[in-house]
Design a protein around this nucleic acid. Structure first.
Length: 867
RNA sequence: GGGCGAUUGGCUCAGUGGUAGAGCGCCUCGUUCACACCGAGGAGGUCACUGGUUCGAACCCAGUAUCGCCCA
C-alpha cells in the first residue's frame, strides 16, 4: 500500500498488466450458456473518435465487466469499419490520389503526399492510381488509424479481447459478405432489377433509402399551361420544368371536384406537344399549387409511386451524368417539340431548365413569373447535389419493403422486432416504424471501389452482349473473389470483355451489406462452426439510436434470412452527447476537445463515471468548460483510494479479516445489512441494463460509509485505549471495514476499473475484474439481525452533534462535556446500541443522552479550548 | 405533417398515486494525524401550462406550449 495515493498513471500501469495477464481474453472452451457475447459497433477508422464514442462504448464496457464478474465468459471483440466511402475520401486527401480502375498496377508506388493535416487535395491535383494501388493505400492508412483507436480504447479501459479484432473490409468479412449474398441469391432473396432508383450524379452511384436525407433546396414554382382537346388550359405548378419532355401524365386527387371532368381525358404538353392522360391518385395534394401535378420519369419519389401504381410509361430524359439524354426520344413527334429537345440535349438539368422556361415563355405557356420557393429535395447524405431518379440495373436484397413471393417478410421482421429486447424498450418503436415505412427492397449495389465486390460474372454472347439473367457464380470455397480482376472458373483472363467470353460485375456492395453481418464475421461463421455455436445468436448489440433503421435493422434482416433467428437477444441504445446549447454534438460545432485529452485531464475513471451516470437512450449534456460530472467521478475515484487505504490500515500488518462471524456490534451489522440491500438493488439494476441505478445506489452507500460509518468506528477500529472497548468489538469494526470494502470495490469495478483494481491489488489476489460479482447472502448471514435503520439513526445523530459545533462556529474536534440528542421515538430506541461510537466521534466526555423529539436536534455543552 | 422522447431548486438529473430528492454551484464554518482533487452545516423548488380522474396527482388521462432526435 502506497503512502500517498494518486490516480495518475493507473491507466498505463493497469492497461499493461491486464494485457500481460490476458485478463480479458476469451476462453473459447466455455459453453454457450456460460458465454456472454457482444456485437461491438466497429468504429469508422477513417473518422475520428469523439466524446460520443467514449460515452457509448463505456456503457457497453460496464455491461461486459458486470457479466464477466457474474461468471459469464465475455466475448467482447472490437471491429474496425474501414469499408466504403469515408475511407476512400480520406485516402484521396491524405495521399493526394484518386482511383482510376483503368490504370495498371504500379509496384512500389509512392504517393504525392503522406498526410496533409486534414486539408483536402483538390480533385484536379490528385494523382490517378490503379484500383489495386488505391486499395493498398486504403489498407495502409486504416492500419495506422486502427493503432490510434486501439490506444485510446485501452487507455479508457475497455475490457475488449484484443486478439479478436476484425475489419469490415478484411478477407474474412469479404468472404462472409459474399457467401451470404450468394445464399440470398440462391434462395431468391437477392435479385437484380432495372428499376428507378436514386442516383447521385457527383458520386456516380445509386443511393439506398437509408442513405437519403431530405434537405431544403431553393427553387422556383413555374405556372405552366397544358392544353385540352377543346383548347382550354390546365395549369400546373412545377419546380422542375426541365422534366416537361419526360411528362407522362397529369394527376389530381380523386376527390378533387375541380378535375372530375378531366379524369380519363387527355391533354397535350406545352412546347413538346405530347398527348398524356389526366389521372386520379390519392397522393396528389389538393392544396398544393393548383392541386394537379405533372408526373414525369422521374422528378421525385411520388412520380415513382404513380408510375408503378398507375402503370405509366417510362420516358427518361436525364442520364446518369445528370445531363439531358442526347437522342431525341420517339414519343416527341412534333417538329417544334423535336427541335426544342435537340437544344436541350447534353445540357445539365440546370441549363435545361432555363432553356425550357425560355421555350415556355416563347409559346406563351408560362403563365407567371417563376416564384421563388424552398422545396424539399432528396440528397445522398454525403452528397451536395439533389439526387436524380434514373433507371438502372441494380442488385437488391428483399427486406419486406416490397412484396416477397410466397412469404410475409415484413410481418416476419416486425415479429423479430417484438422478440428483441430493446433498452430502453421504447426504442423498439423506431424499428417498427421503419419496417412499416419501407416502400422498396434494399438496394445493395454501389458503383465504387473500396468495398466488397459483388461476386458474379456475366457471359458475353457472340455479339458481346452480357447475359444478365444467368450470372456465373463462384463456389463458396473460392470466395472471396474480385470479379474485376479474377476470371471465373472455366475462363481465362484474356476472355474478359471478348464476345463469347465474360465480364465481371464491377459493383461493390453497400457497406451495410457487410456491416449487417458483424455477428457472423466475428463469431466464426463458416470458418469455425465450433466457435460460432458458442457465441451465436449473440447476447448484446450496443449502438446509437440513429442507426436502428440501418445497422440494427439490416443485421436482424440478414440473420433472419440466413439463420432464422435474431442475431442477438438484447439491443442497448445509447443516447447522444449534447453540447451546452442542447444540440447534438458534432465536429463542425468546433468542439476541440479530443477524447484522449479528456481522459488525460480527468482520468479514465472520471470520464467513465460521467458516461455511466447517463442512462441508456437518454441524451447527456457535455460542456467542456464545466465538466462537472467528470469532476464528481474523479472525486469518487480518489475517495475510493483514500478511504480504502484508511479502512485497511487499522490492523497494521495483520491480514484483513473477512470472517463474517467476527462482526458482533449492532452498528457493524447494520452496515452489512444496508450493504446487502445495495448489492441486491445494484444487481437487479444491472441485469436490466440500468447501470445508472446500480451506480447511484452503490455510490450513495459508499459516501454514507465514508462520511458516517467510517467516522463513527475509527476510534474503535484503532483500538484506542480511551474507547474502553474489548478486543472483540475492535475486531468487529475491522472485519466490517474489510467486508464492506471487499463488496463495494467489486460493485464499483465496472465503472471505475482502474481505482478499484489499484485498491484490490493492495490486499487481494488476482484481478478485481475476474472476481465474482458480490451477492447479498453472506452479508445477511454475517448480520442476521442487522438493522439498516440503526445506520440511518446513527448518521442523523452524528449530524445533529456536528451541527451543534458548526452553528457554534467551532472546530468539529471541540469536545462536549455532555450532550442530548433529540430524535424520533423509533430512533431513540435504537441509538443506545451505538452509544460508545457516537460518544467517541462526537467528542462527548460526559453523558450522551437520547430524547424523543419532533426533529433531529442535539444540544450540548461545549468545552471551548482556551485559545 | 408523422413518430419517439423531454420539460422538477442557478446547473446536471433521480423520483410511475400518499406532506418535494441528490450531486454540483452558492452561503457560513472548520481543517492539513485517510482524503484541500478535503470535511461539517445551511439557504434554495406553487415539479412547463390548462382541464379531467381520484379522498389524495410531479406521477394516471385529454389538450396546449416549448425543446431535442428520427422520418416525411
Amino acid at each position: 500500500m502506497p503512502d500517498k495515493v494518486a490516480l495518475e498513471g493507473l491507466e498505463e500501469r493497469w492497461g499493461q498488466t491486464w494485457a500481460e495477464h490476458g485478463t480479458y481474453t476469451f476462453d473459447r472452451s466455455r459453453s454457450r450458456e456460460e458465454v456472454f457475447s457482444i456485437d461491438t459497433p466497429p468504429p469508422t477508422v477513417s473518422g475520428s473518435l469523439h466524446v460520443g464514442h467514449v460515452f457509448s462504448y463505456t456503457h457497453t464496457d460496464v455491461v461486459a465487466r458486470f457479466q464477466r464478474m457474474r461468471g459469464r465468459e465475455v466475448f467482447y471483440p472490437m471491429g474496425w469499419d474501414d469499408n466504403g466511402l469515408p475511407t476512400e475520401r480520406r485516402v484521396q486527401n491524405y495521399y493526394g490520389v484518386r482511383c482510376d480502375p483503368s490504370l495498371p498496377y504500379v509496384a512500389d508506388f509512392t504517393p504525392p503526399h503522406d498526410g496533409t493535416d486534414g486539408k483536402n487535395v483538390k480533385p484536379g491535383d490528385q494523382v490517378p492510381v490503379s484500383r489495386r494501388n488505391f486499395i493498398e493505400l486504403c489498407e495502409q492508412l486504416t492500419a495506422q488509424d486502427e493503432k490510434q483507436f486501439e490506444a485510446l480504447w485501452r487507455y479508457l479501459g475497455l475490457s475488449v479481447d484484443w486478439s479478436q479484432t476484425y475489419q469490415t473490409i478484411g478477407t474474412r468479412a469479404q468472404k462472409v459478405a459474399q457467401v451470404a449474398f450468394l445464399r440470398n441469391l440462391a434462395r431468391g432473396e437477392a435479385y437484380q432489377a432495372d428499376a428507378p432508383g436514386l442516383w447521385d450524379v457527383t458520386f456516380q452511384t445509386a443511393v439506398a433509402q437509408a442513405e437519403l436525407e431530405a434537405r431544403d433546396y431553393p427553387g422556383h414554382f413555374h405556372e405552366v399551361a397544358f392544353h385540352t382537346s377543346a383548347g382550354e388550359n390546365v395549369v400546373i405548378e412545377t419546380t422542375r420544368p426541365e422534366l416537361l419532355p419526360a411528362c407522362v401524365a397529369l394527376i389530381a386527387h380523386p376527390d378533387d371536384e375541380r378535375y372530375q371532368a378531366l379524369f380519363g381525358t387527355t391533354v397535350t404538353t406545352p412546347v413538346f406537344g405530347v398527348e398524356i392522360p389526366v389521372l386520379a391518385h390519392p397522393d396528389a395534394e389538393k392544396d398544393k399549387g393548383s392541386g394537379i401535378a405533372m408526373c414525369c420519369t422521374f422528378g421525385d419519389l411520388t412520380d415513382v409511386t404513380w408510375w408503378r401504381e398507375l402503370n405509366l410509361p417510362t420516358r427518361s430524359v436525364v442520364g446518369r451524368d445528370g445531363r439531358i439524354l442526347a437522342d431525341t426520344p420517339e414519343w416527341i413527334t412534333t417538329d417544334s417539340g423535336r427541335a426544342t429537345y435537340a437544344e436541350l440535349a447534353g445540357k445539365t438539368t440546370f441549363s435545361a431548365r432555363t432553356a425550357v422556361v425560355d421555350a415556355l415563355m416563347a409559346s406563351g405557356d408560362l403563365l407567371a413569373e417563376p416564384k421563388p420557393t424552398q422545396r424539399k429535395a432528396n440528397f445522398y447524405e454525403k452528397g451536395d447535389k439533389p439526387l436524380e431518379i434514373v433507371t438502372s440495373r441494380q442488385w437488391y436484397i428483399r427486406n419486406g419493403g416490397r412484396e416477397a413471393p410466397g412469404r410475409n417478410l415484413r410481418g416476419e421482421l416486425l415479429a423479430r422486432g417484438d422478440e428483441l429486447a430493446f433498452h430502453p424498450d421504447f426504442m423498439g418503436v423506431r424499428y417498427a416504424n421503419w419496417v412499416n415505412g419501407l416502400n422498396g427492397d434494399w438496394l445493395i449495389s454501389r458503383q465504387r471501389f473500396f468495398g466488397v465486390p459483388i461476386p458474379l460474372w456475366y457471359r458475353l454472347d457472340e455479339a458481346g452482349e452480357p447475359d444478365l439473367g444467368d450470372p456465373i457464380q463462384p463456389t463458396e470455397d473460392q470466395l472471396p473473389v474480385d470479379p474485376s480482376s479474377q476470371a471465373p472458373a472455366g475462363y481465362t483472363e484474356d476472355q474478359r470483355g471478348v464476345p463469347g467470353g465474360f465480364i465481371g460485375d464491377l459493383d461493390i456492395m453497400d457497406t451495410w451489406a457487410t456491416s449487417s453481418l458483424t455477428p457472423q464475421i466475428v463469431a466464426g461463421w463458416l470458418e469455425d462452426e465450433d466457435l460460432f455455436g458458442r457465441i451465436f445468436p449473440m447476447d448484446l448489440r450496443p449502438q446509437g439510436q440513429d442507426i436502428i433503421r440501418t445497422w440494427l435493422f439490416a443485421t436482424v434482416l440478414r440473420s433472419h434470412l440466413e439463420h432464422g433467428s435474431l442475431p442477438w437477444t438484447d439491443a442497448a441504445i445509447s443516447g447522444w452527447i449534447l453540447d451546452p446549447d442542447r444540440k447534438k454534438m458534432s465536429k463542425s460545432k468546433g468542439n476541440v476537445v479530443t477524447p484522449m485529452g479528456l481522459l488525460e485531464q480527468h482520468g479514465s475513471d472520471a470520464v467513465r463515471y460521467w458516461a455511466a451516470s447517463a442512462r441508456l437512450g437518454t441524451d447527456a449534456a457535455f460542456d467542456p468548460q464545466r465538466p462537472t460530472q467528470m469532476k464528481i467521478g474523479r472525486r469518487l475515484a480518489i475517495k475510493v483510494l483514500n478511504a480504502s487505504k484508511f479502512a485497511l490500515s487499522f490492523g497494521g500488518d495483520e491480514p484483513v479479516s473477512l470472517d463474517g462471524g467476527a462482526v458482533t456490534e449492532p452498528i457493524d451489522r447494520a452496515v452489512l445489512a444496508a450493504l446487502a440491500t445495495v448489492v441486491d438493488e445494484a444487481t437487479t439494476a444491472l441485469e436490466s441494463y440500468d447501470h445508472t441505478r446500480a451506480l447511484e445506489v452503490t455510490e450513495t452507500f459508499f459516501w454514507t460509509f465514508c462520511d458516517d460509518y467510517l467516522e463513527l468506528v475509527k476510534d474503535r477500529a484503532y483500538g484506542r485505549e480511551d474507547a474502553g472497548l474489548d478486543p472483540a468489538s475492535v475486531a468487529s469494526a475491522r472485519t466490517t471495514l474489510g467486508l464492506v470494502l471487499d463488496v463495494v470495490l467489486r460493485l464499483l469495478a465496472p465503472v471505475l476499473p482502474f481505482a478499484t483494481e489499484e485498491v484490490w491489488c493492495w490486499w487481494r489476489e488476482g484481478s478485481v475484474h475476474r472476481a465474482p460479482w458480490p451477492v447479498s447472502a453472506p452479508l445477511r448471514e454475517a448480520a442476521p439481525d442487522g438493522d439498516p435503520h440503526l445506520l440511518a439513526a446513527a448518521g442523523a445523530a452524528l449530524a445533529a452533534l456536528r451541527k451543534v459545533k458548526s452553528e457554534a462556529k467551532v472546530s468539529q474536534k471541540t469536545r462536549l462535556s455532555a450532550a442530548v440528542v433529540h430524535a424520533p421515538e423509533a430512533e431513540v430506541a435504537l441509538l443506545p446500541a451505538v452509544l460508545a461510537d457516537l460518544r467517541a466521534v462526537g467528542g462527548v466526555d460526559g453523558e450522551l443522552r437520547f430524547q424523543v423529539g419532533d426533529e433531529h436536534r442535539a444540544e450540548g455543552e461545549l468545552l471551548v479550548e482556551a485559545e
